[in-house]
């Protein structure tokens, strides 16, 4: 799987992610040229429901992460998820929200929806020590498919 976000110059492979032992969602590895990760207990992009893709905003000593500029996305901009079967699902950004991690909107991100949607998640806001205070979440809706 791959992900393209032309407005912020993202073109990255996407790896599958599961659950961590503490039941939080796994995140991609901290490395140079870090990939994005698709939460594999969410629908494949393009299927009905909220497909969830995560990426780092920064990756420690490696600098910027793959979702470094996610907060710059604006309503109407395009996101393309390339699938392993050679097709692609095209999404349009509905909204970009920055929310405190302490008030993470679980229902809005993972709750059922009656159409194919996409959630892109990274960290943002001010840092407290080594941690970011907020999450940046992009909400997008399927606008087309590419064969």
């Amino acid at each position: 799987m791959g992900l393209e976000i032309p407005a912020i110059g993202v073109d990255t492979p996407v790896i599958p992610l599961g659950l961590a032992p503490d039941r939080t969602v796994e995140v991609p590895p901290i490395q140079a040229d870090d990939p994005a990760g698709w939460y594999r207990h969410s629908p494949t992009p393009g299927r009905k429901g909220p497909s969830v893709i995560l990426g780092h905003v920064t990756v420690g000593r490696h600098g910027d992460g793959v979702f470094r500029h996610l907060a710059r996305l604006r309503r109407g901009e395009r996101i393309v998820a390339r699938l392993e079967n050679g097709t692609a699902a095209e999404f349009t950004v509905d909204s970009v929200r920055t929310v405190p991690k302490a008030d993470f909107p679980t229902d809005a991100v993972y709750g059922d929806v009656d159409r194919p949607e996409l959630r892109l998640i990274t960290c943002g806001g001010p840092r407290k020590g080594d941690e970011y205070r907020d999450n940046v979440i992009v909400f997008a809706t399927l606008s087309g498919t590419i064969d």
Binding site: G65, G111, D130, N135
Partner: peptide
Amino acid sequence: TPAPAEDADGVTVVPSGAPDTGAATA
């Protein structure tokens, strides 16, 4: 281990908490 949701129409396992997707500069 629950099955992946790639063929499901929703999230089959809802994670807890917020994802930690930012490793500050070491």
